[in-house]
Amino acid sequence: MPEKQRTRRLRKYEADPKCSISAPSNETMQLLSPFGPLIAKTKLPSELIEKINLFADQHISETDSTEFMLPEEIVFGGAPSLADIVGRLINNYVKEAEGSQLDRAIYEVFWIVSQYQNTPSPVHFHSGDISGVLFLKVPDEIDPSQEERNYISGRKAGYLNFIEGNKQRFSKSLLSVKPEVGDFYLFPGWLLHGAEPFIGEGERRSMAFNATLKVKYTTT
């Protein structure tokens, strides 16, 4: 491989020293986040949430947790389609994370996860280069005490927990996010994540996907 091409490919692994995560009141100090995976968060349109939920309602039990795949007509149908919207977000993510241009996203699967109380999602990783989670429904009511961290992996309230590394001083290793309808998270497929079970009435419903990416590397 030519030296210039190899340098371009390796550059995506180098942290940006200007990547600031906060602006402390003490202006002489700046906190940086130079290492680790990037997690993107955004909101998806309410009409898209409604479309996915209308399909899911036909396949979900009112009492039993379940998982099932979304068919192609739900993923690729409509203008813009779910695949189109997710593809644009992946493109933005790739630009921010690697400085590369997305050529195409090869979707492996989109699926629905429906959970009722006492149903966990054990810590796991996904296949492919990139994955995502979209919250479609949240439990009707959660005891506030469950939002206190009572496990190393996060809160026992149906939170989505991302885990990277282990317990080390001066190093963050856990991000625990509260489910909100419409919130959509993008992250590397290898990033460990899971959810503790919630206790309460209602359903925690989410959509997930895996994709393999083909990118174009810039010449600069």
Rank of each mutant, 00 (worst) to 15 (best):
M1W: 02
P2Y: 04
P2T: 07
R8K: 11
R9L: 11
R11F: 04
K12R: 11
A15M: 08
D16N: 13
P17W: 06
C19S: 11
S25V: 11
L31M: 08
L31S: 10
G36S: 10
P37L: 02
T42G: 12
I52H: 09
I52S: 05
H59F: 11
I60C: 11
S61H: 06
E62C: 00
T66E: 09
T66Q: 06
T66V: 09
E67A: 14
F68H: 07
M69F: 13
E72C: 05
F76E: 15
G78P: 12
G78E: 10
A83S: 09
N91K: 07
N92W: 12
S100F: 01
Q101M: 04
D103H: 15
R104V: 06
V109H: 00
W111Y: 11
V113M: 07
Q117R: 05
Q117M: 13
Q117V: 03
P122D: 15
H124L: 04
H126C: 14
S127N: 13
G132N: 01
V133H: 08
V133S: 13
K137Y: 05
V138L: 07
P139L: 07
E141H: 15
Q146F: 13
E147N: 14
E147L: 10
N150S: 14
Y151D: 14
Y151Q: 12
S153D: 03
R155G: 15
K156C: 06
A157T: 00
L160K: 01
L160Y: 01
E164S: 15
K167T: 07
Q168G: 08
S173P: 08
L175D: 03
V177H: 07
P179N: 08
V181R: 14
D183F: 02
F184L: 14
P188W: 02
L191F: 05
L192R: 10
H193W: 09
P197C: 04
P197T: 02
I199W: 00
I199D: 01
G202A: 08
S206P: 13
M207H: 01
M207I: 01
N210A: 08
Y217W: 06
T219N: 01
T220F: 10
T220W: 04
T220I: 08
